[in-house]
Every structure is written in structure tokens, then in C-alpha cells.
């Protein structure tokens, strides 16, 4: 799979779900979408798709769960590992079809590269459905995604503010966890590592009170879950928010940190070793300096 195709999946399945947290935890954003009731469907020609739903002041991101799409003349879809994606078909859903979350706006992308350019702020999608909702797209949704991008683009100055530190850490943690099934399924360096994530749950938690993510590893792949699931097989405990932030942004020597206590590991260390190898590949795709040549 091409660099752009993998990156598009990461943007859709690892980055975009952070909108849920931004709406929940940023009061200004929550107010901004409090009256919104619609679904925005992202579809890439011949590639993956996902939906962003707004209802009752809550944002949810993920595959559609409503009735099947009504029209389907789409290019062949590519499959993905469990937990990675929803129906990867680029079709125009009927208004209201997506789980009853109101009208649907469909944003079509001609290619994975096209989608990635939008995430980089350098391109616009083609709206195929829901023209009457373009106002929301241009104003509220743009403001919301800009806020998410703000939280995901830290600087030392921004990280000195506790609120920003907490949000950046939360979103980076989510992104890392949701990137795992994408990379295990498609990144050529990560695919051989799948056997290292045996059955059981890995919990990554910031002490003392979170946030946390869980990775449920099973025969069909890895399913990321926001929050802390019980009975983990392996635990990665991050001492506090600053340590967690440094860990997640690659500023810690993780082997050394595991000894100094900034990072504590317990349980099935082999699973954590494998997870570390996978997470080390995330910046190859999701940092501004990421180069396509790195994934020939």
C-alpha cells in the first residue's frame, strides 16, 4: 500500500476521531456545535471512508451503522484490519441514512493524496451531497477542525499551559492508539509485527487519573478503545502529563524512562515491545516532516 494510502487511513481513523474529544472537552467547541444535527461522510475514491456525526452537542466519529448505502457504483474498496474502518465504499448516502443523525454531507476525495492535502490544509474536498449544509462545513466544522489541528500542533510555549498540555496529551494518546491497527494492517515495517500482539488488552494510562487508551488484541487484529478497560495483560503507566506528553511526542528515551519511572511497564512486556515498534512508525506519517520516500 502506498504512503499516501496509509496516511489517509491514519488521518481518517486515528486523527479524525479526536474531534469527539475536542467537542467534549473544549467548551467553546461544544457550544459551537450544540445545535448541529448532521453527518459528514468522508469518502476516498477506491479507498477508505468514515463519518463524523453531530447530535445533541456530541460528536462521534466512525463507520456508519445505519441502513446500507443506497447507491454503490464505487471503485473496489480496500479491506482493513478489525477496528480500523467502517464500510470503505465511496457512495452517496441518502439524507438521514446514517443512523438517523440528520442530513448527510458527503465529502468526496479523488484520491488518498487529495484527502491528505485537505488534512494538511492545502486542498478542498468535493461536496457531493448536502449542499444546503455547506455553511456548517465552511464555518463551524472548519473552526472545529482548526481547533483540533491547534491542539495537535504543540510548541514549547503552548505546552507550558496546563490546559493545552492536557488536550495535546489526550489527542496524541488517542492518535497513537488508533494508529496501531492501521499500521499493523498496512505499513510494511509493521505488518511482520502482528504476531507480537497476542491476545489480551494493553492499557496506556497517564497517572494519576488518566487519560487512558486500551488496545484489545485478538485473533482478528487490534481494536483501540478510548479509556481504561479492566484486566489488562500489559500496562504502560505514564507518571504524569508532562512525562506522558514527552513520551508520546518522542522526546523521551523510552528505555531510560522505563527505568527512571517516567514510564512504568507491567505485564506482558513482549506485547509492549511490539507496540513500541509500531508506535515508533507513527511520526513517519503524521509529522510535518514526514516524507513519502520513507515508505517506498
Amino acid at each position: 500500500m502506498s504512503y499516501d494510502a496509509i496516511r489517509a487511513r491514519l488521518n481518517l481513523f486515528a486523527v479524525l476521531p479526536n474531534l469527539e474529544d475536542v467537542v467534549r472537552d473544549d467548551p467553546e467547541m461544544k457550544a459551537l456545535v450544540s445545535d448541529a444535527r448532521l453527518t459528514i461522510r468522508f469518502s476516498v475514491a477506491g479507498g477508505p471512508g468514515t463519518s463524523v456525526r453531530f447530535a445533541g452537542g456530541v460528536c462521534t466519529v466512525g463507520p456508519d451503522h445505519g441502513p446500507p448505502p443506497v447507491a454503490a457504483p464505487a471503485p473496489a474498496a480496500e479491506g482493513g484490519p478489525a477496528g480500523e474502518a467502517g464500510p470503505a465504499v465511496a457512495v452517496a448516502a441518502a439524507p438521514g441514512a446514517a443512523g438517523g443523525s440528520g442530513p448527510t454531507v458527503r465529502l468526496a476525495f479523488t484520491s488518498a493524496a487529495h484527502l491528505n492535502k485537505m488534512f494538511d490544509g492545502a486542498s478542498q474536498p468535493i461536496p457531493l451531497w448536502g449542499f444546503n449544509r455547506l455553511g456548517f462545513l465552511k464555518k463551524e466544522f472548519t473552526e472545529l477542525t482548526d481547533r483540533m489541528a491547534y491542539y495537535l500542533t504543540p510548541s514549547d510555549e503552548l505546552l507550558s499551559h496546563p490546559g493545552y498540555l492536557a488536550m495535546n496529551t489526550l489527542l496524541t494518546l488517542n492518535t497513537a492508539a488508533f494508529a496501531v491497527p492501521v499500521l499493523l494492517g498496512h505499513d510494511p515495517d509493521c505488518m511482520p509485527l502482528r504476531h507480537g500482539l497476542t491476545h489480551g488488552t494493553i492499557v496506556i494510562k497517564v497517572l494519576p487519573d488518566g487519560p487512558a487508551v486500551s488496545l484489545v488484541c485478538g485473533a482478528s487484529g487490534v481494536i483501540p478503545v478510548k479509556g481504561e478497560l479492566p484486566h489488562p495483560s500489559a500496562l504502560v503507566l505514564l507518571r504524569d502529563l508532562p512525562a506522558a506528553n514527552a513520551f508520546l511526542n518522542g522526546k523521551l528515551d523510552t528505555f531510560a524512562a522505563a527505568v527512571t519511572g517516567e514510564v512504568q511497564i507491567w505485564g506482558r512486556i513482549g506485547m509492549i515491545d511490539t507496540l513500541g515498534l509500531v508506535l515508533d512508525r507513527v511520526p513517519k506519517y503524521l509529522t510535518p516532516a514526514a516524507e513519502p520516500a520513507a515508505t517506498a
Binding site: 528515551d253 523510552t254 528505555f255 531510560a256 522505563a258 527505568v259 527512571t260 519511572g261 512504568q264 511497564i265 507491567w266 512486556i269
Partner: peptide, 20 residues
């Protein structure tokens, strides 16, 4: 750790010692 990658690299690394 200031002058050696991992502090103690390789099989003597205490990273897998739980708790270190």
C-alpha cells in the same frame, strides 16, 4: 543516560526489570 543510549543498552538494559 546522558552519554550512553538507553543508559545501559542491550541485554543488560534494566528496562524489562519490572519494577526496575
Amino acid at each position: 543516560t546522558k552519554v550512553i543510549p538507553c543508559g545501559i543498552p542491550g541485554h543488560f538494559s534494566p528496562a524489562p526489570y519490572v519494577p526496575p
